[in-house]
């Protein structure tokens, strides 16, 4: 349903071209869910914005394509794209408090979304009923009261539920969730994640889940793509990625998750030394090699190709390219 082919997105900056996304390919089937995991600045949000056609003005698509149901999003006219947004593709944001317009009641926001998707054929009464049923779907208690409230009268979790209600209002095919739980309390996080998973199964939605948190990714996704400095390092079905991670970056990310089962005292919590490379002039070869403990000579010279190490499990690392035969 969604296919991203060798996408390249650059930002014009004062210091030169920032190569935020450099040749990313992904695909997503109807009803499945993909987690995009990476540190801040890795390009995961840019990727999300590219899919919904919301790149900022200084962004340039330098190559590749995004196909939604076989049609190129990048070559769509503005009007066509506008109809797609909020209807077939919707988005959930990181900061529910900032994402809701403070001067409009919940009901007028949802009414606008419904009217936009379904035209003006719905009567006021139908809309009201639809709003109430949407708020029920996202498990908001006493929807008749909540719909008459302004955003500042609701808690963060409630606001995120309202935004989710808006995102599912017109039965979309794809929802892009950009760190939807990062700004929420941990207890609320779990509820929101469960809600998203439940809605996805019930409504047969596809979900792109952008997060920096592998733990969150584990809960909501069928497939995880680990992205680093604008490139995909590893992509695998979620259970596989957690059981047998292949890329050194993924392995290090997994080690940096605190866990009750792990003996933290003994081993300490692993951190990844260094920071993201300068994306104006990224390191040659593999972009992760300056921070990689397993780096070999070839890593700084040649870019590793994507290799399928097992079924549906792809890695971009020289440990698994042709060189692998020589080493063993």
């Amino acid at each position: 349903m969604l296919k991203i082919e060798d996408l390249k997105v650059h930002y014009r900056g004062d210091l030169g071209l920032v190569k935020a996304i450099e040749g990313v390919s992904l695909s997503l089937e109807k009803g499945s869910s993909l987690a995009l995991v990476g540190e801040s600045g890795s390009g995961k949000t840019t990727l999300g914005h590219a899919v919904i056609g919301l790149l900022p003005h200084n962004a340039v698509v330098a190559g590749g394509d995004i196909l939604f149901k076989g049609k190129s999003i990048l070559s769509m006219k503005r009007e066509e794209l506008r109809r797609l947004r909020g209807d077939r593709i919707t988005m959930i944001f990181q900061e529910p408090s900032a994402a809701l317009n403070p001067v409009f009641k919940v009901s007028s926001f949802l009414r606008d979304v419904l009217r936009k998707g379904r035209g003006s054929s719905m009567s006021e009464k139908e809309i009201r009923e639809e709003i109430i049923s949407l708020l029920r779907k996202v498990r908001i208690p006493s929807p008749e009261d909540v719909m008459e409230k302004y955003p500042h009268e609701l808690s963060g979790g409630m606001k995120q539920r309202v935004l989710i209600a808006a995102a599912i209002a017109n039965n979309p095919d794809l929802i892009i969730a950009d760190e939807p739980t990062s700004a929420l309390d941990v207890s609320v996080q779990a509820q929101i994640l469960r809600l998203l998973d439940e809605l996805r199964n019930k409504m047969n939605l596809s979900l792109i889940f952008i997060t920096h948190n592998l733990g969150v990714a584990a809960q909501v996704s069928d497939k995880v793509a680990v992205i680093y400095a604008g490139k995909i390092m590893e992509i695998a079905p979620t259970p596989t990625l957690f059981e047998s991670p292949k890329h050194p970056y993924t392995i290090m990310l997994l080690k940096s998750i605190p866990s009750i089962r792990k003996e933290i005292k003994k081993e300490g919590l692993a951190a990844i030394p260094g920071s993201l490379p300068d994306l104006v002039s990224p390191p040659p070869g593999c972009r992760f090699h300056p921070r990689c403990p397993m780096a070999m000579e070839i890593c700084s010279k040649e870019e590793p190709a994507m290799v399928e190490v097992e079924r549906d499990h792809f890695v971009s690392c020289h440990l698994y390219t042709e060189a692998r035969g020589d080493r063993s």
Binding site: L54, G86, F93, N101, K116
Partner: peptide, 29 residues
């Protein structure tokens, strides 16, 4: 430049609606 305007864009509202309804009401305060 506020987030909620980005929300309006992500939901595909027309530019006219975003400027004269969603933004102006806040800007007039």
């Amino acid at each position: 430049s506020q987030e909620y305007i980005k929300t309006s864009e992500a939901f595909g509202f027309s530019r006219k609606k975003i400027i004269f309804v969603h933004a102006l009401r806040n800007a007039l305060i």
